[in-house]
Write a protein that binds this DNA or RNA. Structure first.
Lengths: 221, 221
DNA sequence: GTCTATAGTCAGATAGAC
DNA sequence: GTCTATCTGACTATAGAC
């Protein structure tokens, strides 16, 4: 899958798009770096935009398959009963953030691309990606709702939004760590530790007491 | 500040960049929409990149001034003692997310731009913005550290990162709400409610019990 | 399937008149 | 400060030989 032209283009494009963004990375740069002919992109994919869509599909499909299989596993473990919140968060995040480990096959690079796609201006791409995620989101949404039965639905949706948002941000992997810390990340990428920290953080947030409507200080000062 | 050419360019560029991103929005489009001459961008700003930097400086400077003045106010209120976490989060988020309300003067548009800047590929721009934020981050970092004295420093940095990340995502204002919910946002933009919800969520996350090192399920399952 | 060559478009930047 | 006109270069996409 890496030897043929099509795969070479995909792999190279993934790296270059992650570094420079979609608009500023030209097909010329991609094909030159891949060592293939300029025209081959249009032959194999039809257009630049179609190439980008293929890129996302190639990674998102197996990732979401893994998510659903983890969820099924959890459902089996807890037959009928609600799945614990932490386990759900784990099943949702791990197939995505686990790509960070996959330095070999380009998954780590793709992770940044995926994270960035959430804030990308292109409407058509966003819509395409939304469709790829839709069934997974539906499944997890109801599992999360069962895990948090006491949460009013409006509150629930906001918190789901917060969770997905933070995940997206962590995926984009900006080195904003530097902004907040003088420390550079100690381990090159200790994914397990990060997932554990995220799960703890998010579990607490999702379960936070309801905000009081009238108070400015709330229950959290 | 809106009548002169320079201001007109800034206002127009802000809107167009927020809609289409930096790379895909041309100076031609901007100047045409603004009703000014193409050459005036280079006359007033020197280059496209310099225009973008000016854009960010114009908004970030007063925003960060507000943050610091809120922090000073809190310090005065709690002379010597640690400032409560919720109040700190509020002082940090409000000047940023409050821009969402400023539909009149373009602040709402800028908010999306600022959120997106955290995941933007351009290294030079990211570095410039990082420098603009640096003093504010330093001040808040130590205030947060005082509010969370029991947190080990590595844990502390990660959670600060999570907080900033979620804020950045919410600023970018992607309509991912749709992804997670069938509901469109009920209020056009109830900033106060959102800030309250974010504060509750983040307060709980920042104060979550420490993750256990050996356990997969952690204290949060 | 792969290549060369090129069409057709648009970009950022600048020179120089007013 | 503002304008027109233009330079120079880059881009996506395609036609057509091999």
């Amino acid at each position: 899958m890496t030897a043929d032209t099509k795969g070479l283009i995909l792999d190279t494009a993934e790296v270059l798009f992650a570094e420079g963004g979609f608009a500023s990375t030209s097909l010329r740069t991609i094909t030159a770096r891949a060592g293939v002919n300029l025209a081959s992109v249009n032959y194999h994919f039809g257009s630049k935009e179609a190439l980008i869509r293929s890129l996302f599909e190639r990674r998102i499909t197996p990732m979401n398959r893994k998510r659903l299989s983890l969820l099924d596993g959890l459902r089996g473990q807890h037959e009928g009963a609600a799945i614990p919140l932490g386990a759900l968060i784990d099943a949702f995040m791990r197939p995505a953030l686990g790509l960070a480990r996959d330095t070999q096959q380009g998954g780590a690079v793709f992770l940044r691309l995926l994270g960035r796609s959430y804030t990308e201006p292109s409407t058509t791409l966003q819509e395409a990606i939304r469709v790829m995620h839709e069934p997974v989101i539906e499944q997890f949404k109801s599992a999360f709702a069962e895990a948090l039965p006491q949460l009013p639905s409006e509150e629930f949706y906001w918190r789901m939004h917060f969770m997905v948002g933070l995940l997206a941000y962590m995926m984009s992997g900006t080195d904003m760590m530097r902004l907040v810390a003088s420390c550079r990340r100690s381990d090159p990428m200790d994914t397990d530790a990060m997932i554990r920290r995220l799960r703890v953080f998010l579990s607490a947030g999702m379960r936070a007491p309801l905000p009081e409507i009238d108070s400015q200080a709330g229950p959290s000062g």
